[in-house]
Each structure stands twice: as structure tokens, then as C-alpha cells.
């Protein structure tokens, strides 16, 4: 195998590179883009923001697809972030594992709820 460490590391390899550092940036960027798109739709509108306008934004199929990918991005972004927090501050293995399991259940549950809401509209 050729040199694959330091600056020569292949960032698209398995189990390193893309996984945590880069994926947290990409998911963060996607959520930032979503924020700007949603804000633009609210700002460039006339009159008070009522139910019809608000629900109308999420009724469009492209907005549903975008919001779905943002929910998935959020799930992964928060998983990496919270796992980092537990690894930094919680040293006992048992407690750390319990908190990581709690994080996964919490996040998957919340993502499921959000996706269900999205397809109710």
C-alpha cells in the first residue's frame, strides 16, 4: 500500500477522514443552507405569516425532500457532537456507554417524530 498517513491520507477511505470531521462539516453546511432557504421563503412574503403560508412552504415535494435530508443530517451531526462531549467529560466506560445509548435512542426517536410530522402535511 502506498503512503496513507499525514497529509497523504485518503479522506474518502473507510473508518477515518470523511467519517466524523468532514461529515460534521457537510451536515452542518446542509443545515445552514436549509436555514437560509427557509428564512428566504419567510422574508420574501407579504402580510402576516399564517397557517396557510407556513404549511404551504413544507407542502412542496422538493421542500419535503430537503427537510428530510436535513433531519438525517441533524441526526448524524448531533451524534458526532454529543459523542465527542461524552468522550471528553465522562470517563467511566459504563456511564459513557449508557449516555451514548441514551443519545442514540433520543436522536432516532426525535428524527422519527419529525419525519412523521413532515409527511402529515
Amino acid at each position: 500500500m502506498s503512503v496513507n498517513y499525514g497529509s497523504k491520507r485518503i479522506v474518502v477511505g473507510a473508518h477515518y477522514g470523511l467519517r466524523d470531521w468532514l461529515s460534521q462539516r457537510i451536515t452542518g453546511g446542509l443545515m445552514a443552507l436549509f436555514t437560509i432557504i427557509l428564512l428566504a421563503q419567510l422574508i420574501f412574503t407579504r402580510g402576516p405569516i399564517g397557517y396557510d403560508l407556513w404549511a404551504g412552504i413544507f407542502a412542496a415535494q422538493w421542500m419535503k425532500v430537503l427537510t428530510f435530508s436535513v433531519i438525517a443530517a441533524l441526526l448524524y451531526h448531533v451524534w458526532v457532537g454529543m459523542r465527542d462531549v461524552w468522550m471528553d467529560y465522562i470517563q467511566p466506560v459504563g456511564i459513557r456507554l449508557a449516555l451514548q445509548i441514551f443519545t442514540i435512542v433520543w436522536l432516532v426517536g426525535c428524527a422519527g417524530w419529525a419525519i412523521q410530522v413532515l409527511w402529515k402535511i
Binding site: 407556513w54 413544507f58 448531533v78 457532537g81 454529543m82 417524530w113 419529525a114 410530522v117
Partner: peptide, 16 residues
């Protein structure tokens, strides 16, 4: 992260 259920509750009630 901790207020995620409240955020989704707002998402739910404002849209349903």
C-alpha cells in the same frame, strides 16, 4: 440536543 423534543413539538403543532 436536550430541547429537541420541544423543537419538534413546535414543528408538529405549527404544521399539523
Amino acid at each position: 440536543f436536550l430541547l429537541l423534543p420541544f423543537i419538534i413539538w413546535m414543528f408538529d403543532t405549527s404544521l399539523s
